[in-house]
Amino acid sequence: MIEAVKIWNEPNNKSHWDPIIDPEWDLFAAMTRLAGTAIKEANPDITRVLGGMSPIDPHFVRRLADKGAMEHVDVVAVHGFPLDWNLWMIDEWPAKIDEIRRVTDKPIWVTECGVSSFGSEEVQAWGVKKTAELLIGRAPRIHWYSLYDLPRAWEATTRHKEAEGSSYYRHFSMGLLREDGSPKPALEAYRPYAADMGLCQWFHFQDHRLDDAVRLMDELGVRHLRTGLSWADSFRDGALDWFDRQMEALDRFDTTVTFCFTPEHRGIEPHHTSAPQVAEEFAEFCAEMVARYAPRRADARIAERRSLRYDR
């Protein structure tokens, strides 16, 4: 069900990793080493991806390399939103990838790129086409963020909420579809690129949009999907049932799954951006999810033979 796993999401972004707790990323590097090792032991064929950088920062890659973390990932991922949050022009996408290519010999994936329709749906549609032209052929994986707008009743994962002004509200308008599922002009702009530029869609716990999303992605011809399984959600009642349903529904896609979000009761501070009290616990979660949804081929064949025998 899984072709790759990402270790965390945007670890150099304050909205996803608390720099007060871990100002030099020593704890993050140690957690990455443990998680990367655990994932490889669970399935050596799975591609391990370093959580997408935002901002794109070659110094961050060097810092993690100095701490031994880069030896435990196979791919470096970057995120970019030049029309909304980044301080660079959309035409600089190739140059931003080259910045990272100069400091690592690992493949570089763009696991989030997007344009908000907050200011103009027409600008968003233009941004889809422009981003595709700039990135297709330059990165082995590209994931447009996202399929759906974030529902207004939910909360965006960011630092200062409404104090960020329009920067906060742009989070809610990144989809090709509006909150009610109606299409924006960006949907048709995206359609010709669906086979080469995948999607990133986070599904919340018991997300009511899952089945509709799968049907539409099938119809568009999407091949590559990025989503997430939340370590924090794993402590909810019925978590495995939801994870099973989500991953079974997404089985038809080449899926990259991000493992992230610290459970409040397991963080150094009670927050999802906190470094965990015990990094080995996050590594165990990664290994358990890989063993469940992407077992190594030999294990999968054994399970299949057992199933056939019992069916008889």
Results as ranks from 00 to 15, higher is better:
Arg191Pro: 06
Tyr193His: 14
Ala195His: 06
Ala195Cys: 02
Phe203Ile: 12
Phe203His: 02
Cys200Phe: 14
Leu210Cys: 10
Cys200Ser: 15
Gln206Arg: 14
Gln201Thr: 12
Met217Val: 07
His208Lys: 07
Cys200Asn: 15
Met197Phe: 14
Asp207Gly: 08
Met217Arg: 05
His204Gly: 15
Glu219Tyr: 10
Asp212His: 02
Ala195Pro: 03
Ala194Gly: 06
His208Phe: 12
Phe205Tyr: 15
Leu210Trp: 03
Gln201Met: 13
Asp207Ala: 07
Asp196Tyr: 12
Cys200Met: 14
Trp202Leu: 04
Asp212Leu: 09
Leu220Asn: 07
Leu210Pro: 11
Ala194Phe: 03
Asp212Ser: 10
Ala195Ser: 13
Leu210Ser: 10
Leu199Val: 15
Leu216Arg: 07
Gln206Gly: 09
Glu219Thr: 14
Asp218Gly: 13
Leu220Gly: 03
Trp202Tyr: 13
Leu220Ile: 09
Arg215Gln: 12
Gly198Arg: 05
Gln201Gly: 14
Leu220Asp: 03
Met197Asn: 04
Gln206Thr: 11
Leu220Thr: 03
Asp207Tyr: 00
His204Gln: 13
His204Ser: 14
Phe203Arg: 01
Gln206Pro: 09
Arg215Leu: 13
Arg191His: 05
Pro192Lys: 00
Cys200Thr: 15
His208Pro: 12
Arg215Gly: 06
Gln201Lys: 08
Ala195Asp: 05
Ala194Arg: 01
Leu220Cys: 06
Gly198Thr: 10
Arg191Phe: 09
Arg209Met: 08
Phe205Val: 04
Trp202Arg: 11
Met217Gly: 02
Arg215Val: 10
Ala194Trp: 00
Ala213Ser: 15
Gln206His: 14
Phe205Gly: 03
Cys200Ile: 07
Cys200Trp: 13
Leu220Gln: 04
Met197Ala: 10
Leu210Ala: 09
Asp207Asn: 11
Phe205Glu: 04
Met197Lys: 11
Asp211Pro: 01
Gly198Pro: 13
Leu216Gln: 05
Glu219Cys: 12
Ala213Thr: 10
Phe203Trp: 07
Arg191Thr: 06
Ala213Asp: 01
Ala194Pro: 09
Gly198Gln: 07
Cys200Tyr: 14
Ala194Gln: 00
His208Gln: 12
Arg209Ser: 09
Arg215Glu: 11
Leu220Pro: 12
Arg215Phe: 04
Ala213Asn: 05
Arg215Asp: 12
Asp212Gly: 07
Ala195Val: 00
Pro192Thr: 00
Gln201Pro: 15
Ala195Phe: 00
Val214Pro: 11
Arg191Glu: 01
Trp202Asn: 04
Phe203Tyr: 10
Trp202Thr: 06
Met197Arg: 04
Asp211Ile: 04
Trp202Asp: 06
Arg209Ile: 01
Gly198Asp: 08
Glu219Ile: 10
Arg215Asn: 10
Pro192Trp: 01
Trp202Cys: 09
Met197Glu: 11
Ala195Ile: 03
His204Arg: 14
Phe205Pro: 08
Asp212Phe: 05
Gln206Ala: 15
Asp207Phe: 00
Asp207Trp: 01
Gln206Leu: 11
Ala194Lys: 04
Tyr193Ala: 01
Asp218Lys: 14
Glu219Ala: 15
Asp212Met: 08
Ala194Leu: 03
Leu210Arg: 03
Val214Met: 06
Pro192Met: 05
Ala213Val: 03
Pro192Val: 02
Leu216Thr: 08
Met197Val: 13
Leu216Trp: 05
Leu210Ile: 04
Gln201Trp: 13
His204Trp: 15
Trp202Glu: 06
Asp218Gln: 15
Met217Ile: 01
Leu220Trp: 08
Gly198Ile: 08
Phe203Ala: 03
Leu210Thr: 05
Arg209Pro: 11
Ala213Gln: 02
Asp207Gln: 02
